[in-house]
Simulated scan of single mutants.
Amino acid sequence: MDRIFTVEEARALMPSLLERADEFVGLRGDLAELARDLREYGTSEAGGLPEAKALEARLDEILGWFETHGIEIKGVSPLLLDFPAMLDGVPVRLCWLEGDRELAWYHRDDLGFAGRRPLR
């Protein structure tokens, strides 16, 4: 069964989430640049295939942390994360999008991101 968060429980995870999300975004950019250099030139100042594999492994570790804590990964570029929750008896997802510095949005399960609304 999926974990159901209260708003308070989800917000309590935000410092750890933000730390990992910031690292994820930086590593994702590093990997994109390294991969492009390797494709285009066969070499890169950032390294080679071993460095690319190490970046991929760390990105997977970070994604695993989210999943282990019951946070759903909806996208990785941009990073989009949902916390399953209930608001006023309605199933919702507390929604965090890359660039947000707090958990301030939700959407009903049946509407998805298009139904995103501010938390009150």
Rank of each mutant, 00 (worst) to 15 (best):
G48E: 01
G48P: 07
L49F: 10
P50R: 01
A52D: 03
K53L: 15
A54G: 11
A54K: 10
E56Y: 11
A57F: 00
L59A: 01
L59F: 05
D60K: 06
D60R: 02
E61D: 12
E61Q: 10
I62V: 10
I62F: 11
I62H: 08
G64W: 11
F66A: 03
F66R: 09
T68P: 13
H69G: 08
H69A: 14
G70R: 13
G70M: 08
E72H: 12
E72Q: 15
E72I: 14
K74M: 02
G75L: 09
G75H: 02
G75E: 08
S77Y: 09
S77K: 12
P78I: 06
P78M: 08
L79D: 04
L79P: 03
L80E: 09
D82T: 12
F83W: 15
M86E: 15
M86F: 11
L87K: 13
L87F: 05
G89T: 05
G89I: 03
V90N: 13
V90K: 14
V92T: 01
V92L: 11
C95D: 04
L97E: 08
L97A: 07
G99T: 02
D100C: 07
R101C: 01
L103Y: 02
L103K: 01
A104Y: 07
A104W: 01
A104S: 15
W105A: 00
W105S: 08
